[in-house]
Write a protein that binds this DNA or RNA. Structure first.
Length: 899
RNA sequence: GGGUGAUUAGCUCAGCUGGUUCAGAGCAUCUCGCUUACACCGAGAGGGUCGGGGGUUCGAAUCCCUCAUCACCCACCA
């Protein structure tokens, strides 16, 4: 066997094996289902740290479910991500010299699908490298024909229910992608800008002015009023007057609205109803005209009359010059304000009035809120409910703008006639039958379908139903739905989590009938964000995620999984520790997190190597081995119970660290050292077999976290029949453990550690055999009569002998519990140092005795505390007195020796 | 303005229902060791009055209040 574990080859080998065996494929059967649907990554995506964390967690849960004997089904897939993908395809076409505007919708979609077929699967292949045990036969895509069909079906259904409507509303416009965005797709960040104070002449005067403050002087062209607060005495004289808008020379009224804050700026506000959410509301209240001064691409429109065709940011510069020239600029101040940008393109979002399709959210969001409030759907960590509640409060819910002015997506199933009639229907035929209901004679040629597509999230919210083809296959849906858990980042709680809950409650009851759960999942596990060294969230837009594949190649998938999980408590952000180059994504320095995982695989590999190297004898196991076996089995049991409890509450990192400690510390450092035969000697068969059994169980326990190394070791532990693989092994049952026995072993460790410490301090070779005595006492006899105990200490402490002695010995001593031990060797140690050490220890125990004494003298403590706590304190006190006595004796001896 | 979370060893973080398996892990540091599983290692050591201040309690890192600092979310921002 190689000295180092070869992860690269091994991981490839086992993934192929698992796939070939079909272990990840699930079909409904008599077992209980355990299902998870993947949060579908964008087809444009490549694997980043967030995906790795999120999918590793899903894999851990899925693999454990499989080991528990459940019918585990993890459904993978990708999201068509309209804006992101369309932007990418447009860019690629541009590089080929093709403009989107020059080709037809069909041609564009052809290019887009070609692109998707070529690159859309990359991220899924990367998930395989990570070890994801998805049922790849079930891979879905949100824009595949079936899923698109469901989207249309649902759209029409909601329209018929009166929840979808078309309306002229203020929406967020992305001038780069030339599409509407939902509120959630706009991200606000503070940016440096300027606050311009501009004076407008009062109509009918020669030199009377009103000064307003604005950050967007270019929108002056669309002003249709000036507003002041009705309580503002400075402006009370302006009632009924008008002002003249500079540049355009339009006369607009001065209106009074309490929305205006007197303290801000000059207390006077220019009103541009077409280009500001709040101005629009004021405009509605005061019946103001709204003038759309922008084109779709962010240049000035004909209606602006001036600067037509110029870009809005150019206009901003130019208009300030012109205003200055005409004497309208009163002041320009530096100012920080929040600017909304498109999540996908980064373009500054322009609020505009546009005709769009909307979904009424009142009823849906109320259902979604109740589901979580009532504990029907549980959140981990549970405080996430606060964020959720805040979002879904009725006063915070706005209708969802579901139309997008793009081609990549499901086209809105609305059909228009030339004479202005409209029908919403799943097919042209259906549309015609609606339109011709009253004797009309429209034919397919008369109809024109709405140009817009439906928001991507409108397909993702059906995901948990759609991937099981729930709209037509009730059996699958009944078996797998609701899914057990959703694992996702909290950043898409509103985009996606809330909406899936809405969709679940809206359609699952219709599809499954009463008596079946409506919720799409029982639990939601929110992962934290993965942050870089500077605490920035790792994201596509920042481009600050290291190359995931490079990480896997460097540390192995198991190593990376370990690294991610070991520091990821539910909901907590994790800081990725390896610095890497922002541009190349190459890792500059080591990731300690992942290194720890890689080292762990190597440790286990070598443990196996040790077992493999032993010769076997048919002799009976020694007392030492019997004790060790009894102990490791109980430690294993203890850990199984803890792992089970940890999984129950999604404390995955704790489970993993517990297993690591069991394997590395208990199994390798203690157990194997105890049973290890002296060089050249064989091991007895029953101990070896037992050890292999324990190793096997540990591999099953660790398998969900580190699937590859565990499978490899599993295969090498003993000869296997086909199909006897770790991935489909059985999760072990937790047996009993004897607390008193475990404590005795802990004491044994303390004794051994003391022996080692004495050796280290006296520069004694580790294996030089020493004589040791223990002072006779009831507890010493009790401790050492445990079968095999004395022999074990002798063996791993490298002692010549260990005997109970009724007499004080003149030798180096230490305490373990209340027993005093004496080690015999030629002393080189400095007596003064020894005295200092003893004094320090004495001081500690004396202080300890005082504090416990106080506690026990306190009647309230004795009365109120649980009896076992009080007993424990008494025991502590007695032990401490005993220790003090022993230490004092030792001290005296030293002092005497010193002379 | 409303809300959430964090603050524990030099660093990154665990610590669930208050009480010796409660002051922990890993890394880093120091000392010793290339001992025939493993230097991707082993043995040992040092290091924290658990952000400050109050309170509840017999008992608080853990519960309550308050202050401070940091992060984030929502709303507002002319």
């Amino acid at each position: 066997m190689d000295k180092h574990y070869n992860a690269q080859e091994t991981e490839k080998k086992w993934y192929a094996h698992w796939t070939e065996k079909g272990y990840f494929h699930s079909t409904p059967d008599e077992r209980k289902a355990y299902s998870i649907v993947i949060p579908p990554p964008n087809v444009t995506g490549i694997l980043h740290m967030g995906h790795m964390l999120n999918n590793t967690i899903q894999d851990v849960l899925t693999r454990r479910a499989r080991l528990l004997g459940l019918n585990a089904c993890w459904v993978p897939g990708t999201d068509h991500a309209s804006i992101a993908t369309e932007a990418k395809v447009v860019q690629l076409l541009r590089e080929k010299g093709i403009k989107k505007s020059d080709i037809s919708r069909q041609e564009f979609l052809k290019y887009a699908f070609e692109w998707k077929d070529k690159y859309g699967g990359i991220i899924l292949d990367q998930l395989k490298m990570l070890g994801a045990s998805c049922d790849w036969e079930r891979t879905r895509f949100t824009m595949e024909p079936k899923l698109s069909e469901y989207v249309i079906k649902v759209f029409v259904d909601l329209y018929k229910k009166g929840l979808i409507y078309k309306g002229l509303r203020m929406i967020n416009w992305d001038p780069e992608a030339k599409t509407a965005l939902s509120n959630e797709e706009v991200q606000y960040h503070e940016e440096d800008s300027k606050l311009y104070k501009v004076r407008y002449k009062i109509a009918g005067t020669t030199d009377e002015w009103v000064t307003i403050a604005t950050t967007r002087p270019e929108t002056i062209l669309g002003d249709t009023a000036i507003a002041v607060n009705p309580n503002d005495e400075r402006y009370s004289g302006l009632k009924g007057k008008s002002v003249i808008v500079p540049i355009v020379n339009r006369t607009v009224p001065i209106i009074f609205d309490s929305y205006v804050e007197m303290e801000f700026g000059t207390g006077a506000l220019k009103v541009t109803p077409a280009h500001d959410m709040n101005d629009n509301e004021i405009g509605v209240r005061h019946k103001l005209e709204s003038i759309d001064i922008f084109n779709d691409n962010g240049t000035m429109s004909e209606l602006a009359k001036f600067y037509v065709g110029m870009d809005r940011f150019e206009v901003r510069k130019q208009i300030v010059k012109d205003l200055k020239a005409q004497g309208h600029i009163v002041a320009i101040e530096n100012y920080k304000n929040k600017v909304g940008r498109s999540e996908r393109t980064g373009a500054v979002v322009e609020p505009r009035l546009k005709e769009q399709w909307f979904l009424k959210m009142e009823k849906l969001s109320a259902m979604a809120l109740a589901a979580v409030e009532d504990g029907d759907v549980r959140f981990y960590p549970d405080h996430m409910i606060n964020m959720y509640r805040n979002w879904l409060k009725p006063e915070n819910v706005r209708d969802w703008c579901v139309s997008r002015q793009l081609w990549w997506g499901q086209q809105i199933p609305a059909f228009y006639t030339k004479d202005g009639k409209m029908a919403v229907a799943e097919t042209v035929e259906e549309a015609l039958s609606i339109l011709n209901k009253d004797g009309g004679k429209y034919t397919a040629e008369d109809l024109k379908q709405d140009e817009d597509v439906i928001d991507t999230w409108f397909s993702s919210w059906l995901w948990p139903i759609a991937v099981f083809d729930g709209f037509e296959n009730k059996e699958e849906l009944r078996y797998y739905y609701p899914t057990n858990v959703l694992v996702t980042g909290w950043d898409i709680m509103f985009f996606w989590v809330a909406r899936m809950i809405m969709a679940g409650y809206e359609w699952a009851p219709e599809l499954l009938g009463e008596g079946h759960e409506a919720k799409p999942f029982n639990d939601v596990y929110f992962t934290g964000m993965v942050r870089d060294k500077f605490r920035r969230k790792m994201s596509k837009s920042l481009g600050n995620s290291p190359d995931a594949i490079e990480l896997i190649q460097k540390y192995s998938a198991d190593g990376v999984r370990f690294g991610m999980l070991s520091s990821a408590a539910a909901g907590n952000d994790i800081v990725f520790d390896a610095p890497f180059d922002d541009k190349s994504k190459k890792i500059i320095n080591e990731s300690k997190m992942c290194e720890l995982g890689r080292n762990f695989t190597n440790k286990m590999w070598n443990a196996l190597k040790l077992l493999k190297g032993w010769n076997i004898t048919e002799e009976k196991p020694s007392a030492v081995n019997l004790l060790a076996m009894k102990w490791i089995e109980q430690k294993l049991n203890e850990q199984i119970a803890e792992a089970n409890a940890g999984f129950e509450s999604y404390r995955l990192s704790e489970v993993l660290m517990g297993l690591r400690s069991l394997i590395w510390d208990d199994f390798c450092s203690w157990y194997l050292e105890i049973i290890k035969p002296v060089y050249g000697q064989p091991i007895d068969r029953s101990t070896l077999d037992f050890t292999i059994g324990i190793f096997e169980k540990m591999m099953t326990l660790l398998h969900p976290f580190m699937p590859f190394i565990t499978e490899e070791l599993w295969a090498n532990l003993r000869a296997r029949a086909t199909g006897d693989d770790c991935v489909v092994s059985r999760w072990p049952e937790a047996g009993n453990c004897d607390a008193k026995f475990l404590q005795a072993v802990e004491k044994m460790k303390v004794v051994v550690q003391n022996i080692r410490d004495v050796r280290a301090k006296n520069q004694l070779p580790e294996k030089e055999q020493l004589k040791m005595l223990v002072k006779d006492s009831e507890s010493a006899r009790d401790f050492l009569t445990e079968a095999g105990m004395t022999e074990t200490i002798v063996k791993i402490g490298f002692l010549e002998s260990l005997d109970i002695s009724s007499e004080e010995a003149d030798a180096t001593s230490f305490l373990a519990g209340t027993e005093q031990y004496f080690l015999f060797f030629e002393k080189k140690v400095n007596i003064a140092e020894e005295i200092a050490r003893i004094k320090k220890e004495l001081e500690y125990f004396q202080g300890f005795v005082v504090s416990i004494g106080k506690k026990l003298e306190n009647e309230k403590f004795v009365q109120n505390a649980k009896p076992e706590v009080v007993d424990a304190e008494r025991k502590k006190l007695a032990d401490s007195h005993e220790k003090i006595k022993l230490l004092q004796e030792e001290l005296e001896k030293c002092l005497k020796a010193e002379g």
